[in-house]
């Protein structure tokens, strides 16, 4: 298998992601690690709560991986995403791509995270000291 996709309520294990994506054929791996930031527009963020429409989220992540394989000469793709409550500094998403040459790995990794944010049915609620907000829900 050249694609590994996971939605998990457990802490993501970054080292095991890297171990899985490495291969003797690869000249480089590109890893994007999303982390929970402590503020949004100057307001202190207490935590994030992630919810997913799981079967569709898995299906959309597989589509993005298939598109990336069509566009770039890459070897493996890993997409792991969290659900549930995350504290500041925790990791909601890990994307890893391996390729023979770095340009394809960088470009595909960027494409995967950018597209994931646009199409995959996962939602996050930011908790502030004065209440909760579903990110991007309202103009």
């Amino acid at each position: 298998m050249n694609t590994q996709i996971l939605l998990s309520a457990q802490t993501l294990d970054i080292q095991s992601c890297i171990d899985w994506i490495m291969s003797p054929e690869s000249g480089g791996i590109d890893v994007f690690i999303g982390t929970v930031r402590n503020a949004t527009k100057g307001k202190k963020v207490l935590r994030l709560d992630f919810e997913a429409y799981e079967p569709m989220a898995i299906s959309e992540m597989n589509k993005i991986a298939a598109q990336a394989f069509e566009r770039w000469p890459i070897q493996k793709i890993l997409i792991h995403h969290r659900t549930g409550l995350l504290q500041v500094g925790e990791v909601p998403v890990v994307i890893a791509v391996s390729a023979a040459h770095r340009d394809a790995a960088f470009d595909a990794c960027r494409y995967i995270i950018d597209t994931l944010k646009q199409t995959v049915p996962i939602w996050k609620k930011e908790s502030f000291e004065d209440g909760d907000v579903w990110v991007a829900a309202h103009p």
């Binding site: 997913a52 998403v93 994931l116 995959v120 049915p121 996962i122 939602w123 996050k124 829900a137």
Partner: peptide, 10 residues
């Protein structure tokens, strides 16, 4: 059928 409000994963 599911309603998909603006997504905000990642």
């Amino acid at each position: 059928i599911a309603i998909i409000p603006p997504v905000s994963g990642g």
